[in-house]
Write a protein that binds this DNA or RNA. Structure first.
Length: 147
DNA sequence: GCCAACGTTGGC
DNA sequence: GCCAACGTTGGC
């Protein structure tokens, strides 16, 4: 899962109450579907910093609460307010994520791109802009072996 | 700041 | 349903 560290970083997550935060603001249907349908309690998730000096994987989170309606979609004061999301039929969802640990170092996008073992990885495919995406077990294990 | 690659909107 | 215009993401 991606976040711009200037908006919400791995350190912000670590500093959150119970080291847990709601992953709000996802406004893309493909990403929404994964949040709503695929992400399960206990799943482990890489935290990816995007749009920053060194984009890359910085840590690991755990899903502690499965999908529920994104309250920021209902609040006109929120950046991600969506008047078309009806509380009776919510359009956008969140999960709660808990900080597990930071990686010993940032595994940068350029380093990941250079790994043949990751050539099929969703994150590295051309034109990919999804903020939430699946990862294969083998990719997960390989990435951790780089640390 | 630039720009490629999407995704969304809305007229027709 | 098509598609042009526009908006967003995110690396560089």
């Amino acid at each position: 899962m991606k976040s711009e560290p200037s908006e919400f970083s791995i350190d912000d997550l670590k500093a959150s109450p119970k080291q847990t935060n709601m992953w709000d603001g996802v406004r893309n249907y493909q990403a929404r579907n994964m949040i709503r349908d695929s992400i399960k309690k206990g799943d482990l998730v890489f935290f990816y910093h995007s749009a920053c000096a060194e984009p890359g994987i910085v840590g690991i989170m755990e899903v502690v609460k499965e999908a529920y309606p994104d309250p920021t979609a209902f609040d006109p004061d929120e950046n991600h307010f969506d008047p078309k999301s009806d509380p009776e039929d919510p359009r956008w969802f969140v999960v709660d994520l808990k900080f597990k640990r930071k990686l010993k170092r940032t595994l940068s996008l350029s380093e990941l791109k250079a790994c043949n073992q990751l050539s099929e990885m969703r994150l590295l495919q051309r034109g990919n802009r999804l903020s939430v995406m699946p990862i294969e077990d083998a990719e997960w294990d390989f990435i951790l072996s780089l640390e």
